[in-house]
Amino acid sequence: MPKHNQSLRKSTATKTKASKSAKYKSQRSVGSRTIRKPIAFCAGKASGDYLKPWLIPPAQRLKQQILAKRINKLVEKYGEIGAKWHLARTILNRDIPDATIADNFKAGKFFTFNGANTVDIIYIDTNATPNVYVLEAKGGKAGFSKGRNGKYPPNVNNHLSQGNFDYLFDVANAMANSSVPSKAAAGNAIIKAYNSNNGKLHYIGTSTKIGDSTTNPSPTELFNKTR
């Protein structure tokens, strides 16, 4: 390994530890450009997964794959699992299953959404006056966000920062105008909770760092707001 490259890798205590492992070096192709190959991942859908101690099995499998080769898809999935685990185990201590593709939007399950103008995950509890939980998930070192320019009243063209309710309200309006029925339903549910005194709207951001082979960092809260 060239001296300068070694120096770069020693810039943190984490990398110093990792750089001592020959296996790590061979796996990571240190000093050379690597080509990404997709790794198949089967998300843990089993009931109760998010109530297990961290690291839960799907997160553990992902972490091993990420340590072998950092692939954004895996880092994103890791962050998503971390956010769900944080709500289910740390905040609510409640079993929350993932919705399946066949599920229409409803209370009692985690729903994740694809696309440009959407929250990551939403869960609505089954209370008579339901609480709405919106989760924003970051994985690895992806902790940097520029926010968005508002598109809906009262924040048209205002700069909105992720983690604030005005940002969430703008995104929820975009979701409510989506042609995807479950996304539109979720957007309307957020707007209803935002405007109503029935039930609370919880907006929670988490970051799930990878750590090295010797540490098991659990998700950390970036923000947790209730309205």
Binding site: A83, F113, N114, N117, D120, I121, G139, K146, R148
Partner: peptide, 19 residues
């Protein structure tokens, strides 16, 4: 971010990175 002039940001949810 601290030195260049920001223009715009394209965002995606955590489940749509590959998309």
């Amino acid at each position: 971010d601290s030195n260049a002039e920001f223009i715009d940001s394209m965002t995606h949810s955590s489940s749509s990175g590959e998309f």
